[in-house]
């Protein structure tokens, strides 16, 4: 693959991740009590005050990261931040799946597609923790890959500054 095509793919992936996280963030910000309910349903042994603070701050961190990714600003920082958040999501959904908790993952607002009974089964799959676990795992892989190559880009950009006196 040529470097131009490679860069195009990376831009597409970055935009994809940015838009996905933007959707996730907005649906959580729009209904914070529902998101807090989703966090409670994971039954994590942490103080309620901490979980409430998490429910307040996490969607906004997601929102900032997604906007930075879309604008291609502080991309490494945004990707690293998303990487950390996705790791937390993977642990949360993984433990819920292992414990057999029948809960909705609360990752996205899927109410728009629940109006019809035909979409109920699909909605159940999309909201299940097992699906969320694998989706988060895949997303984490993509974000990590983007982060690695983004950092590589930054290195390459800075090399001429260092290398110019030598050449």
């Amino acid at each position: 693959m040529t470097s131009a095509a490679f860069n195009r793919w990376r831009t597409v992936l970055r935009w994809g991740v940015g838009l996905l996280m933007l959707w996730a963030a907005i649906s959580k910000i729009a209904n914070p009590m529902d998101f807090l309910g989703s966090i409670y349903s994971y039954q994590v042994p942490l103080p309620k005050t901490f979980l409430k603070a998490l429910a307040c701050a996490l969607p906004w961190c997601e929102l900032l990261c997604s906007l930075l990714l879309l604008a291609n600003l502080w991309t490494s920082g945004a990707l690293f931040c998303l990487d950390l958040m996705l790791l937390v999501f993977i642990i949360a959904t993984g433990q819920a799946w292992l414990r057999g908790l029948h809960i909705s993952c609360g990752c996205f607002d899927l109410n728009w597609m629940v109006i019809g009974s035909k979409t109920a089964a699909l909605q159940r799959i999309l909201e299940s923790v097992a699906f969320a676990f694998f989706r988060n795992l895949g997303l984490w892989g993509i974000v990590s890959w983007l982060l690695y190559h983004n950092a590589e880009d930054a290195t390459v950009k800075l090399v001429p500054e260092v290398a110019s006196p030598i050449t």
């Binding site: 701050a57 920082g77 945004a78 690695y148 950092a151």
Partner: peptide, 28 residues
Amino acid sequence: WSRCFAFDIVKQVGAILVMGCILGLAYN
């Protein structure tokens, strides 16, 4: 290690998290 931490990523991550917390709590 060098690629991840060489270019002020830690500062950017810190700034994003702090801004996210402040915005989240203020909006709430």
